[in-house]
Each structure stands twice: as structure tokens, then as C-alpha cells.
Design a protein around this nucleic acid. Structure first.
Lengths: 355, 355
DNA sequence: TTGAAAGCGCTAACAT
DNA sequence: ATGTTAGCGCTTTCAA
């Protein structure tokens, strides 16, 4: 304690990290103004003389003062925090969504409180606890929503936005890719490619995304008078999909085309077909994914797939959050368009011969 | 408003989501006790009669009351929130770390406030703002830490834990994989495999992980009297690594072994070697990664790599956070061991001939 | 064991 | 434009 430091009592807060963090009161005293002047100096639109603000800012700097956001939240009644629940971070598609969401929220001046679930299903407990912060909104990424949780959120006045999932619950907003349309487009593509024995590899049964994709796929086939596809469940995981693919390829009526409910599973399917069964993917067997994740374009896989534009979906979610924060009460459901991306993992339709 | 509902004035908060959220005062009134009794009912170790607690709990349930964590944080001076900054969520290895961290924090009763950076370098601004919550700790995942930010954190009494990164800053804790040892093990493996022209593909230059891996690699080679490796920079990205690999393979003195500073880059390198240059990976060219991410084991890649056990690293970080929260001031630096995983992306040493 | 009262650090009327 | 005052919802002495 021999180094002299700007006159101040030993226990006064300083920028050197000693003592407790500085409060607005400390700053006010040092600047010779009232505590509310300090508050105003840090409130964007407040009416305060430039000179006063400068004094305050200088004092604040000297003390290393930062307004306590917790106190601010307490009084304003909202936390400026958005809760984000995510089921399976291992899935790169969700990681990408989270990344985009994080950026978008930061730009909107909102914080992101993250929780994951390892049970891969409901996300109850962690959210329960976190609901006690006055969240501005709760975004659930590919995660199931129980009626009970939905009710609790309503009670706590926390609006819910589902990403990549739909729910029958009222008052629950959602943003989804074009699962139905995408699946139909894929069905059309495979039929045009003259595939004869079609299979669908489902994700987790509770997943509305998987269900919708299956539904669209089956509906188009039915429309064309084609029977329902063979069905296996790959659980949306690499291991699960690999196992499902083995079952498919071991059948006596082995399918010649497999529509996997997401790219992840398509990758596993390709690996199994190529390395375990020695099949040439895209010629001897066609494998299609869904989502167009970055890996889908890697030369090892070159997956034919249907896009689910992360950026647009996050943008749509942000728009909904904005409305919700401004007091909107009704749910918004939005579907973001996508398109078929044709690569080489599935046989293409032959061009019609010139006649 | 015709449905009768438990006697109560129109604007009193109810479990049906009307009105404002219930406060401890509301509960106290309904239960016929003081507000402090309500507080005690929700404070684990508090001295309160069972009968009183029951009354309070019943009333709370009826009103849908949940203690306001913001108010609790304000008074307790700590938020029970850990900030997590992450540079590049697209990297599955970091996504996996985040997943593990999220689970571990939840188990420890801590919340996770996430922020990412798109500049892929410093993460200044977003953290700046978030520091105003009284974070219990700040975990930086493969993210650079500027001296300025370090100082601010010290002022705000927010301890920093670096994951996958080291820093010369004092008071900054860190957890790392065995970059030096791993790189040496890889160098030894490649030399034993009789590779003659070694190359190193670096990640971002500011990354301590990349630097340490390069250092360990070079040091072992020097020890063995082998000259320094050819060097290219792949920026830790798929595209960057692909470009770097093209440059390497177009050299007249094309390397016969490439040590990539992470698995991500190794994957890109394999794709380029295999699909653009028609090389048989593991025979005509050896490619080694670092980290042993799940994809490394996929049959398409089968990367020889060095493990960086996510679980152990996160566990180490949690231990450090625990100590820090209990008042420890000194930094802790820990290195988590790993091991070489031999797959088929690199030629193996021939077994010594029996003599 | 319980209630009354004093804040935690801040914002937002309300005066001046 | 500035200071004074009254809380935000909770925890925690301090008495009773």
C-alpha cells in the first residue's frame, strides 16, 4: 500500500479492482452531483446538460463504474433476456441456428440465456427454474413443449417461440421450414428419377419436423398412386441412422432410394451404404437429406437435399420476438420457403429423349 | 368474465395468467402471514414452522408465484450466472464443449449467458455489456482475450476461465488439452511412419492452441534432427483449409504428411486430396488432425488424431469455477491429458521385421 | 418461530 | 436541468 493513488479513503472503490464494485452513489459523490444525475448520464434519451454528463462520465471512468443491470431489470420489470432451449447441440444444424440467433439477439440488445437438455426430449426442469427471471421470450429450438410448461410460461407472461417445431398449444408462436413442401419436392424428384422402392428414415417420433416431412412424402406418393414407403427410424442421430440404414439394406426388398429426415442421418446412411455395403451412392442407391447443412455440400457426401434457410428462419423468429415484446398477444406462425438442392447422392431424372 | 374463480378482486394475480405476476406480498396476504415468512418458505435452510410453510406453499401455488430471481440477485450481490463467450459455434468441437458446459453449469445451479462473436477474433463488445450483470464467472471458449477486457473483468470482480486457450494475463485461469504433448506424439508417429516431407497446417495465428501445436510439432522434429515442416495456414475453417491443402499439394516438393491443427481442417484436407487430386489418403498422403471430434471416426474420414477430452476439460473448468466462486483469487491453469488415436488417414509405422 | 423494518442499486415521477 | 423521493421484489438483521 505504498503506491499513492488518487486521494481516497482505503476502502473506496477504485479502478484497480479493490473493494466492492462502484455504485451510482459513489460516482455521484465523486462528481459532486446527485445520484439521479448519474442515472440520467447513463440513460440514452434523458435530459441532462452536456457538462454534467461529462463530469459524471469522468468520475465513472475513474471508479470503473458500470450500471448494475440487475437493478435496472428489477425496476423496469423486464430482463432483456431471451431464454433459448435447445435439444441437441451436437446437430450442426442447430448449432448454426443458435449461432445466428445469438448474433441477432445481440444486435437487438437482448441477452441469451441458454439451456440444453440431455434427455433429448422434454426440457422441463431447467426451463422451470429459469422462468423466474422475467424473460422477454423463450425460444425453443427443436425441443418438445409440454402443455404444462406452456401454461407456466403463460402465467409468467413469457411468450414462447418454437423454432423448427410446431405445437397445438394456443398462444405459442413458431417458425418452420417448408417441411411439407420440401418433402413433396423430394418425392417428386425421386419418382421422376424412376426409383421403384422408396424408403423414409424418420427422426425422433415426437419431432413435428420429422412427422411433417414424412407426411408430405407419403402424401405425394399417394397422390401419384404409389404405395407408402418402407419406414425406419434413425432417431436423428448418426448412430441411430447407421443402424436404420443397415436394416434397410439388409432387406430382401432393398430400397433403391432413401429419404432421410435430415442431413445428419443422410450422412450416416451414405457412410453405411458406401463403406459397409460397397454401394455406389447416387447410382446403386439414392440417398436424400433435408436441411442443406454445410456438410451436405462436402464432396464426400454431396447430398441432394432441401434447404432450410437458417438466416431467414432466425430473422422470422426475431420479428416475432419484437412484436411480442411490444405487447402482441396472439401467436404468429410462419413458414419459411426452401428449395431443392440437387447434388450427386441421388440419381437424377433422365432428360426426356428428343422425339 | 362469467366463469367464477376463487374469490378475489378482479385485478388480483391469479394462476390463470391474468394481471401482473404474483409477488411475495400477494402470497403473504393470501396466506395470512408476513412477507418475510414467504421469503423463508422459499429459502432452503431458513427457520420456519412446517405448518407455516405449507400455508405459504399452498397460497403460492394458487397464485402461480415464483420468487423473482432478479430481486434475489440484486440483494445477494451475485447473479448465479456464468457468461460463456464462444468464437466459432460452427466448429462442432466447440459446440460439443458448449453442450457439456451447459449441462455441468445447470447441475451446479448456474445459468449460462451466451454470447458469440462474428468477427472470429476479439469478443469485446458483447462481453462489455454483459459484464454489467454481476457474473459469477466468464468462460471464454477458444476466444482471444484482450488485456483491456481482462482488466475490466478484474475491476468487475468477474473471474475469467479460458477453455482451449492460454493467456499471459495474470489472474486468468485456463484449461487446455495437451497441445504440446499431442503434437509431439503426432510428430513421432509420422516420423516412425517414414514420412519424409512434413507439413503443418496452422489455424488462426492468434490461437494459442494452434501455436502450441505447431511448437510441439516443430520442437520434436528439431529434437530428431529433422528440419522445420512446410507451413500453411487454414484459418481453422473448412474453406480455408481446403485452399491451404491445394497450395500444399501443388508444390513441387509436395509433402507426404500433413498435420492439421484440428480435425475440421483435416476433413477439408482429406476431401481435397481425395476428390481434387485423386490421392489415396493414408497411402499416398497422410493427414492427421487434432481433437478427435465425433466426425473424425466416421468411415469417410477415419482420421488419425489426438484426443482432447471435452468432458474432462469441462469438468476441470467447473472445478475452477467452483473455487473461484468460493473466493479463490489466484488463477488455476490446468492441462488435460489426451492420447493418440490411430485410424487410417495416415500411414502407420511398419512393424519392425523379425530379425 | 415470526413480523417489522432496513436496504440491495437503480429508475422515474415529482418538485424545484 | 437538477435534486428529492418513492419504490421495484426480495433477503436479512433485529426484536418480540
Amino acid at each position: 500500500m505504498s503506491k499513492p493513488q488518487s486521494q481516497s479513503s482505503p476502502d473506496s472503490p477504485l479502478a484497480d479492482g479493490g473493494g466492492r464494485p462502484a455504485t451510482a452513489d459513489d460516482v455521484a459523490r465523486l462528481a459532486g452531483v446527485s445520484q439521479s444525475a448519474v442515472s440520467r448520464a447513463f440513460t440514452p434519451g434523458a435530459s441532462i446538460a452536456a457538462a454534467t454528463r461529462d463530469k459524471v462520465v469522468a468520475a465513472a471512468e475513474q471508479l470503473g463504474y458500470q450500471p448494475n443491470l440487475i437493478a435496472r431489470s428489477l425496476i423496469s420489470g423486464r430482463s432483456n433476456i431471451v431464454g433459448v432451449g435447445i435439444g441437441n447441440l451436437e446437430n450442426p444444424a442447430f448449432a448454426a441456428s443458435l449461432d445466428a440467433l445469438s448474433l441477432a439477439l445481440a444486435e437487438a440488445g437482448l441477452r441469451l440465456l441458454l439451456f440444453t437438455t440431455n434427455t433429448r426430449g422434454q426440457i422441463e426442469t431447467p426451463i422451470q427454474e429459469v422462468l423466474q427471471y422475467r424473460l422477454d421470450a423463450l425460444v425453443l429450438l427443436s425441443t418438445a413443449l409440454s402443455p404444462k410448461l406452456a401454461l407456466q410460461c403463460r402465467n409468467a407472461h413469457v411468450p414462447i417461440v418454437l423454432l423448427n417445431r410446431t405445437s397445438a398449444e394456443p398462444h405459442v408462436s413458431s417458425v418452420n421450414g417448408d417441411n411439407l413442401g420440401g418433402a413433396r419436392a423430394i418425392a417428386a424428384f425421386l419418382l421422376a428419377g424412376e426409383h421403384k422402392r422408396l424408403a423414409f428414415m424418420a427422426g425422433m417420433e415426437e419431432s413435428s419436423a420429422s412427422r411433417e416431412r414424412e407426411q408430405g412424402f407419403g402424401a405425394y406418393l399417394a397422390d401419384q398412386g404409389v404405395g407408402p414407403p418402407i419406414r425406419e427410424n434413425g432417431q436423428f442421430t448418426h448412430a441411430g441412422a447407421a443402424a436404420a440404414m443397415r436394416r434397410l439394406l439388409n432387406r430382401t426388398d432393398r430400397p433403391d432410394a432413401v429419404f432421410c429426415a435430415n442431413d445428419q442421418m443422410a450422412i450416416a446412411a451414405i457412410d453405411v451404404a458406401r463403406y459397409e455395403f460397397g454401394l455406389e451412392v447416387g447410382r446403386e442407391i439414392s440417398i436424400v437429406g433435408f436441411g442443406d447443412t454445410p456438410m451436405a455440400s462436402w464432396p464426400s457426401f454431396a447430398i441432394t437435399t432441401f434447404t432450410q434457410p437458417t438466416e431467414s428462419m432466425v430473422a422470422a423468429a426475431m420479428e416475432i420476438i419484437g412484436k411480442l415484446r411490444q405487447g402482441r398477444r396472439e401467436a404468429v406462425r410462419s413458414v419459411v420457403e426452401g428449395e431443392l438442392v440437387i447434388r450427386s447422392s441421388a440419381r437424377r431424372p433422365q432428360p426426356a429423349p428428343r422425339s
